[in-house]
């Protein structure tokens, strides 16, 4: 039976889809058979970040409605044949996801894959609820910024009381934080909360810290998840996070400001 991992956050724009795409490729590169599912019904985007947008024929809602089989809807990644994407539907029907429908798809995926990664939409409505409901583990993506941290706490609260695990009295969903857009320089100057601050406020451990880096935008521009850019700090930080999610002990990197040259220091950056 595969494991269900949700990538969620509450707040929008913090990097959930970027994270889902990178974690998916990272797990695939490590030999895991993985399916990544876009729960953002109406606002499909994971396909674009994964670079498979032109190959979407059927989507999540088609599978639920029985318009096609799950196998027909899964898009095989061109880079890793052990990685599949299930695209979100672009329907405007808010009730397109049903609990039984989603449960069936998740259970079928668990039978076929080692990991089912659920990319949650922002907010705490239907799509976000179903993305986290079936989770065994959660990666809560958070920016070191007040509204993101507060929303993450709300999501953690909902997960601990409303998930299937909570309802069935099983062990709680295992929670991890993934800090994105982290800027060690600004932390040092006291303009940004540190990893330790965010961990202390939320009471959850960080599984990875992704530094703010221009390669993240280039990666989405080209439809190649940033984890595959092995020269970028963000890519390497995602690789580390994948290793930690697989249970390895890897020291944190990119937490200290980069050393600046003499002139840079003199004239500011």
């Amino acid at each position: 039976m595969g494991e269900v991992i949700v990538v969620t956050s509450g707040k929008g724009g913090v990097g959930k889809t970027t994270t889902s795409a990178s974690l998916a490729c990272g797990f695939a590169r490590r030999g895991k058979k993985i399916a990544v599912v876009d729960f953002d019904i109406g606002l499909r985007n994971l396909d674009l970040i994964m670079g498979c947008e032109r190959r979407v024929v059927y989507d999540f809602v088609n599978v639920i409605n029985g318009d096609c089989t799950l196998k027909q809807a899964l898009i095989k990644d061109k880079r890793f044949d052990n990685l599949s994407v299930l695209a979100a539907s672009q329907t405007k029907d808010k009730d397109a996801l049903t609990q039984e429908g989603v449960a069936k798809v998740i259970d079928d995926l668990k039978n076929d894959f080692d990991i089912v990664l659920c990319d949650s939409p922002a907010g705490i409505e239907r799509g976000a609820f179903f993305a986290m409901y079936f989770a065994d583990r959660a990666v809560v993506v958070v920016n070191p910024e007040v509204s993101s941290v507060r929303d993450s706490d709300r999501v953690l609260g909902i997960m601990s009381s409303k998930s299937r695990r909570a309802e069935q009295g099983q062990d709680a969903v295992k929670e991890h934080l993934l800090l994105t857009r982290y800027s060690p320089d600004r932390v040092e100057r006291g303009d940004m909360m540190s990893v330790g601050d965010v961990e202390e406020i939320l009471g959850v451990k960080v599984i990875g810290v992704i530094p703010e880096s221009p390669e993240v935008l280039s990666a989405s521009n080209s439809g190649v998840p940033v984890i595959l850019d092995e020269n970028s700090d963000a890519g390497q930080a995602y690789s580390d996070a994948v290793a930690r999610l697989l249970g390895e002990t890897v020291p944190m990197r990119f937490l200290d400001p980069k050393k600046k040259g003499f002139f840079q220091r003199l004239f500011g950056s």
Binding site: P144, V149, V187, G190, D191, M192, D197, I201
Partner: peptide, 9 residues
């Protein structure tokens, strides 16, 4: 301001 953010949160 990071300290202030933390205290408020």
């Amino acid at each position: 301001t990071a300290k202030l953010a933390k205290e408020r949160l």
